[in-house]
Design a protein around this nucleic acid. Structure first.
Length: 482
RNA sequence: GGCGCGUUCGUCUAGCGGCCUAGGACGCCGCCCUCUCAAGGCGGAGACCACGGGUUCAAAUCCCGUACGCGCCA
């Protein structure tokens, strides 16, 4: 038995940033390929001449790289220029579409259509009036050669249309949805080549999926209705069709299609907000896919091993930012501090904290509090500031009632032989009982005095890390005796 | 409008004819731990399985309609 090698692809149009939905599609293709020891291909579908941009290409590549969804073939790989399937930009493959189009034309399976936009609009209008599906009426199907020469001579530009069968049904075998049937009579003679000589989406994608030997087309739900047309193309070209799997869409928290008004939709925005890429990737894997063991957190290898099309959901999934945030914290908490700092480097640099001595120790103090990488500088900066950013609550705590306490304590602690957590705790607790103060009367003002905040790490650990000099100085300052 | 797809707690989901008076996770609430905030532990509220019909001894699970949502034709 011959088993075909699994080859999947992600084929974005570079007409904007990579959004969450696209990233999820790419991810599933990648996971599926990895699961089967196959190859994941990235192909850029840049046939939209007006909307495609180089910036978009860059953004898409950067997004995938950042997310850790690594394509095996595609732009910027070893095969990019010379591999058997290269190139990976559709605009560099125009010749192959034109060759195939000519073959279809010669075989009578496609025909030139000279209808103007006005004629098509009129067709559509009439159809709507008569409550028929708006569909090209095939008037150029049987254009006499003479008439055609006339139009050509008059300088009329033609598009190329594919001749759909008039009857019968086309069945789309879908790995997620089962067999879906479509009436051919309802499918229209769609355009495969534009007048400019550039192919349309449905045509180019069929040619390429065949040329690149794609075994499984895993893509968004919105393409399900295009699939019967594509299947007819495969048949007309004598190609073996790949297997299809149509993924449900991703909706916003309110059930409407995910869009900018729901917050960030671009992968790079999540990067810039401080999300940890593996966490986002893990979260995305869970949107529309699940295992039977109700596991939530996956190592990369586990994802490869456990991912399956069977676990893919038919119904759309809502993107839940709250769960993503939880998951991000979950990942950050497990990270060794040094790795955490490396990951947070851009944010620490922006705050001017990167490379500061003691950073690792302070960062460790707040260990379990980071939800985002961008939280790291925010929770750690008190250590490095000469002038603390006082919160209102903290200011109140070091108010009149506590000044003498803080001053006395400063004096006490300056004599402490060893400035480490244990002795500090003993000393401060001793101080409390000596002065008949409740611990809370001392602990809270001290925290406020040394950090400017009311929330923070365990007090004694924090004092140890801050060190004698800073602690005494800050206590005195707060006490107003300095 | 036609065709197609979908519908289990607020959200992601488990479930594939009896184990379901529907399980887990996020979020929410409470308690415990505790020097604060987190983290962690324990517990709680939250789903008449969209609705209506069948099939069956038995249905969230199978079948048929309806509604609603979404996609494609644009």
């Amino acid at each position: 038995m011959t088993t075909t090698k699994v080859r999947t692809r992600f084929a974005p149009s570079p007409t904007g940033y990579l959004h969450i939905g696209g990233a999820r599609t790419a991810l599933f293709n990648w996971l599926f390929a990895r699961h089967h020891g196959g190859t994941f291909v990235l192909r850029i579908e840049d046939t939209d001449e007006v909307r495609s941009t180089h910036d978009s290409v860059d953004a898409i590549l950067e997004s995938l790289r950042w997310l850790g969804v690594a394509w095996d073939e595609g732009p910027e790989t070893l095969e990019a220029d010379r591999g058997p399937y290269a190139p990976y930009f559709q605009m560099k493959r125009l010749q192959s579409y034109r060759d195939r189009a000519r073959k279809l034309l010669e075989a009578g399976k496609a025909y030139p259509c000279y209808c103007t936009k006005e004629e098509l609009d009129e067709m559509r209008r009439l159809a709507q009036l008569e409550k028929r599906p708006p569909r090209y009426d095939g008037r150029c199907r049987r254009l006499a050669d003479e008439k055609r020469r006339e139009l050509e001579a008059a300088g009329k530009k033609a598009v190329l249309r594919f001749r759909m069968p008039d009857e019968g049904t086309t069945m789309v075998p879908d790995l997620i949805r089962g067999n879906v049937h479509f009436e051919n009579a309802l499918l229209q003679d769609f355009v495969i080549m534009k007048a400019s000589g550039v192919p349309t989406y449905n045509f180019a994608c069929v040619i390429d999926d065949h040329a690149m030997e794609i075994s499984h087309v895993i893509r968004g739900d919105e393409h399900l209705s295009n699939t019967p047309s594509q299947l007819q193309l495969y048949a007309a070209l004598g190609f073996k069709a790949p297997l299809f799997a149509h993924l449900s869409m991703i909706l916003g928290p309110d059930g409407a299609k995910l869009s900018k008004r729901h917050g960030a939709t671009s992968v790079l925005e999540y990067r810039d907000q401080g999300y940890y890429p593996k966490a986002l990737r893990n979260y995305l894997a869970l949107l529309g896919w699940a295992t039977t063991e109700s596991q939530e957190l996956f190592e990369e290898e586990e994802l490869f091993r456990k991912f399956s099309i069977e676990g893919c959901q038919k119904s759309p999934a809502s993107f839940d930012p709250a769960k993503l945030l939880w998951m991000d914290g979950e990942y950050l908490r497990k990270l060794p501090v040094q790795e955490l700092l490396d990951a947070a480097k851009p944010f620490l640099e922006k705050a001017g904290l990167w490379g500061k001595p003691g950073l690792e120790k302070v960062a460790t103090l707040e260990r379990e509090k980071y939800k985002l990488l961008s939280d790291v500088p925010k929770l750690v900066d008190f250590f490095f500031k000469d002038e603390l950013d006082w919160t209102e609550k903290a200011k109140k705590l070091v108010g009149d009632g506590s000044r003498t306490i803080l001053g006395d304590l400063a004096a006490e602690l300056s004599k402490l032989p060893s400035f480490t957590a244990k002795p500090l705790e003993e000393a401060i607790r001793g101080f409390c009982s000596a002065k008949s103060l409740k611990t809370s009367q001392v602990f809270h003002p001290v925290r406020a005095a040394v950090s400017g905040r009311t929330e923070g790490p365990s007090l004694f650990d924090m004092l140890e890390v801050l060190g004698r000099e800073k602690v005494i100085e800050r206590l005195r300052k707060a006490a107003g005796s300095n």
